Simulated assay, not measured.
Amino acid sequence: MYFFFSHLSFADSCYSTGVTPKLLENLVVEDRTISFYGCILQFSCACIFGVAETFMLAAMAYDRFMAVCKPLLYTAVMSPQLCTFLVAGSYTWGIVCSLTLTYFLLALSYCESSVINNFICDHSVIASVSCSDPYTSQTLCFIIAVFNEVSSLLIILTSYVFIFTSVMQIPSASGRQKTFSTCASHLTTITIFHGTILFLYSKAS
């Protein structure tokens, strides 16, 4: 669990590092410009670590499922090799998504100067200031975003349905409370992370 938490913290720190410095600069200086390639780089970094964080949370849900529902098999199944594979897979998929979306953004043509009505360089706002038709890029972004959100949430919800079922079969209240406490920090992180994503993109759509 702490191995996953360390990488989750790393991914979150990298995401914040890519976005926060420019945001803080914009709050204190009058010149709020960003270069085109700086904007693309900011989006690419945010995409890599945002997607990686999404699937790391799903991997952690599976880890909690094994710990609660299959405790005798936990050590054998959740080996260091599998944990490393799950984390590496999260980063790799984040890089694949970022490179794909960045490529289609760079394939668009842009005007000399554009105003981005957002505090970060998000895909939708970059595509919206393109002088060419961004339909393909926006459609691809929508498909990737829906796939990432639905697949990760499906893993998380399925894991916690089994966890909840197993916990409710524990006869003692203290035993149930102790088991739930091992999942509390993960559930809190999921609620904040996915709740923010769903709220922002539902409002944007």
Rank of each mutant, 00 (worst) to 15 (best):
T179S: 10
N117I: 14
V19D: 08
L108N: 00
L57V: 05
A127R: 01
T92N: 02
A11W: 03
L153A: 04
S205Q: 11
L82A: 08
T179F: 03
L73W: 15
V19W: 05
T196Q: 09
L106V: 05
S172E: 08
N148H: 09
G175Q: 08
F43H: 03
T165H: 11
S79T: 11
I34R: 02
E112C: 13
K203W: 15
C14V: 10
V115T: 05
I48H: 00
C121M: 03
F36W: 11
L108K: 01
F36T: 09
R176F: 05
A76Y: 14
V146P: 00
A127T: 06
L23C: 08
L153F: 02
L105I: 04
L72K: 05
S159F: 03
L27D: 07
T84H: 10
L86V: 03
M66L: 13
T196M: 09
T75A: 15
E25P: 01
D133R: 03
Y2Q: 09
G50V: 06
V146C: 12
Q138T: 14
S9M: 12
T102S: 11
F164Q: 08
Q177N: 10
N117Q: 08
S152V: 04
Y15E: 03
Y74R: 04
L57E: 02
D133V: 04
Y15F: 13
S130E: 00
C45Q: 10
S205N: 11
M168G: 11
S205R: 06
